[in-house]
């Protein structure tokens, strides 16, 4: 159990922290999505690493009796990747809509715009093409 032997897990922690940091520190919505992706990818590495058995091969039935890596985590992570893609797609499409509505994708600017509509609480701002009382 040396430090290098746990390389994958260190990578997992490093990526997780990087992704998390981007999520928190970046005000740009697109960059946030990037951060989210890095964050989720770190989990993929965690799962894939845990399925690997030293000297194991791909789980395909062959002659002899080789050691197989555990395929289950891979399958699980396939699902997780799909989920990640869907999340990214949805997130980016929301960013596009936000850009249409606000003309910016910077969190601070959006915040200012919301505030600038002073007393804005009592008015609603219909998104493009939609009348509030249609």
């Amino acid at each position: 159990m040396n430090v290098m032997g746990l390389m994958n897990y260190w990578a997992f922690i490093f990526l997780m922290m990087v992704g998390f940091y981007i999520l928190i520190s970046q005000g740009n919505l697109v960059k946030k999505i990037v951060g989210l992706n890095v964050f989720q990818t770190s989990v993929f590495i965690l799962y894939i690493s845990m399925g690997k058995i030293r000297g194991g091969t791909a789980p395909i039935l062959t002659e002899g009796d080789p050691i197989y890596s555990n395929p289950l985590p891979h399958v699980l992570i396939l699902t997780a990747i799909v989920v990640g893609v869907a999340t990214t797609a949805l997130g980016l499409s929301l960013v596009v809509r936000i850009h249409e509505a606000y003309g910016t994708v910077e969190e601070d600017d959006i915040h200012d715009l919301d505030l600038a509509v002073a007393g804005g609480e009592d008015q609603s701002f219909p998104v493009s093409g939609m009348d509030a009382r249609a």
Partner: peptide, 17 residues
């Protein structure tokens, strides 16, 4: 209807994910 719904959904997406 309100454009703030978009930012609300985005915020929820980030925290939920």
């Amino acid at each position: 209807q309100d454009r703030r719904a978009l930012t609300a959904a985005f915020q929820y997406l980030i925290m939920g994910s």
